[in-house]
Design a binder for these strands. Sequence first.
RNA 1: GUUCCGGUAGCUCAGCAGGAUAGAGCAUUCGCCUUCUAAGCGAACGGUCGGGGGUUCGAAUCCCUCUCGGAACGCCA
Length: 564
Amino acid sequence: MDYKQLIADAIHKELSEHLELNEIKLLLEKPKHTDHGDVAFPTFQLAKLFRKNPAQIASELAESISADVIDRKEVVGPYINFFLDKKVVSGAVLKEVIEKKEDFGNHTFGENGKVPIDMSSPNIAKPMSMGHLRSTVIGNALSNILTKVGYSPVRINHLGDWGTQFGKLITAYKKWGSEEDVREEPIKELLRLYVLFHEEAEKDDTLEDEGRAWFRKLEQGNEEAVALWKWFREESLKEFEKVYQRLNIAFDSYNGEAFYNDKMDRVVDLLDEKELLTVDQGAHIVNLDKYDLNPALIKKSDGATLYMTRDLAAALFRKETYDFAQSLYVVGQEQSNHFKQLKAVLKELGFDWADNIHHIPFGLITKDGKKLSTRKGKVVLLEDVLDEATAQALQQIEEKNPDLPNKERVSEQVGVGAVVFHDLKNDRLNNFDFTIEEVVQFEGETGPYVQYTRARALSILRKAGQETFQASDAYQLSDAYSWEVVKLLQEYPDTIKRAYDNFEPSIIAKHAVHLAQAFNKFYANVRVLDEHEEKEARLALVYAITEILKEDLRILGVESPNEM
RNA sequence: GUUCCGGUAGCUCAGCAGGAUAGAGCAUUCGCCUUCUAAGCGAACGGUCGGGGGUUCGAAUCCCUCUCGGAACGCCA
């Protein structure tokens, strides 16, 4: 039920000669202050039309408008403020939530279209950092949002499993490493070797050459090099998997950079056929002047392929494999030029589907104001952050609720939830400077706050001994506190749609926080379990909240403990 | 130098298909547990919405310009 629509209809009846229905709908707004009602209609625009002052128009127009959902109208200057019938609306909304449960807010316009999402993409032999967290959790949340609006997402972990760094790594391993050490703590050891290589390379020029030589051997299929590469890859993946399990994220594909090694010749041939390649300073490029972009580098002057070549191959592969409706790349904003070029080259090749490729950029995480750099060993390890968050959550539980069963499990849910929620709660383009204090918080607009709110709500249901509800519009509520909650529930389908339209998980996070805040106010001011004529309806509201908070958190990739 | 992000309360951020007194969290101070989990609720404090122009009945929101941060600008990914 769309109340804005109903009111627009009612107004349109009176103004059909002057304004289109959708024009009226666009004029309707949601007042900032509750004493201005639930829906407001400003009449400024009508002033010219009627050659009267807006206030006069408002008061004359208000009298003739009526609809079942309108409880009362107030004219304040040039505004007509509509107050909806709380009982009618709350009954209808609660009925729908109880009926649909976690499917409330779903849309079908995605029509099952496949949407590959390039996300996470850590580099083999390097630890997962806070930077990878962003791509991972944003990609995961977008996947969930896409599912909610009817698409069929394909989570692709485009692993950084190829490149000259493997030559360096092999060199470093053979010089300073041992099988034992790598087996012990694969990523820590491989990172140590990688950092060491760069330190030593500053003193010794021949090291870089050696690294390049080993990479060449790897490319040529040298047995020793390939074996080491495979081993590094396997060991790294095992460790990544541990993190992904903690984050509760699974991928549909691990086709990384290496996967496209044998698929790039075709791209070059295709570009050649269409006569798009030109040679400039020895390198093969595609000129993109007409797009106002720098040329795309396809082949280096030594003949080696590049990032662009590989991504073109990947784009083609994904189109052919999935016949996607859209293709998303959750990659840092510093690469927006690359993706503009990628789309432009595909366009030049005559592929209209390039329009369905979307780069989903996100802001940079810095530490002490500086960019994180694996090479310099300046990283914030994701595992360390999750461990710290979990430890603090456990400490919190010991203080607040020491008798809680499954403390370990719950502290993991709360700790990891805090970190993930923190990463998703603001506009994804915002940069932020990492401090553990800021990321691991349990009060205010945080994941644990939302989790805690839901746990309290569930506790009421447990005490009431009622955890299932009949879908009925008899659950009617009249108090101001529940009304704020009902309005937020009612907006849910729209919220999901907006999150999808903007590819923006923070819209869901904000809904979760607002819903939790509204419920906590309700909780503090309205007794649910006391005998009251609206007791059943209040319980139904509490139930609806537990469902929707859980759904909000699920979309974000955050778990919902039943008690905490 | 060019292009792209961003500048809103002490701090972190909402609000930006223009609308009625600019909101929240954190921090600080003060209230509220004999009643549904105080990881909560309430109150106080806190703002030239970076500066200046313009469009408009109306601008934090749109346009121009300046300024200050961050990022990207052909052989890394």
